[in-house]
Amino acid sequence: MPVFDLSQTPLRELNSALHNLGSGANDTAFEVVNPRGSHAVAVGIDSPITVEVRGSVGYYCAGMNDGGTVTVHGSAGPGVAENMMSGTVVIEGDASQYAGATGCGGLLVIKGNAASRCGISMKGIDIVVHGSIGHMSAFMGQSGHLVVLGDAGEALGDSLYEAKLFVRGTVKSLGADCIEKAMKPKHLEKLAELLEKAGVKDVKPEEFKRYGSARKLYNFNIDNADAY
């Protein structure tokens, strides 16, 4: 398995190696050691490879991932797995703000807590946070699922479109146009599937509440002007 020691090897060599896999390449499993908070680690992956990152990373780790499986054995800085298209990103520790921002697909699992703006502008990604999430999470979320086993901070789901939010703990406050919605069998089923994919055991879908868009901001109305 190729190992990249980021205390010795430039970032460019790592990302270049991850992008230029010939068809039928043998080495599809990579290891990164000593990331020491580096930015843009394992970004732009476009094939089904696996990357194990041993340590904590900076901004935009696994950004725009398309098909890869990236595991960070540490914490992640801002914008982890931003704009992910497909694949899986797992953070063993905590994630900073903007985790999974604008993600279009794939699964992001955060085993610790996520900071503010988790799932901001999400466009189809599924995010499962074992801990809690910070303020303004799922802001303008368009589609996909955000599952939170812990609590959510202020203004959850502000200006939400069609992303579906499931929170097991308390929600400090809901953002504009975000409301609690009934949990239907199809939601329980989806939730069970996501929990299983994210390696969550001993937690039942029935323990969550569902939040979604009230759709009151979908077409401009002067009486909602305070919410804009």
């Binding site: 908070g37 900076g58 900073s96 910070g134």
Partner: peptide
């Protein structure tokens, strides 16, 4: 400002690391 700034501190591996709340 970033986690990178903290990586050389003694015992950082076992520190409580968090982002200050707004």
């Amino acid at each position: 400002s970033e986690y990178r700034a903290l990586v050389n501190l003694p015992g950082i591996e076992n520190a409580r690391v968090w982002e200050p709340e707004p």
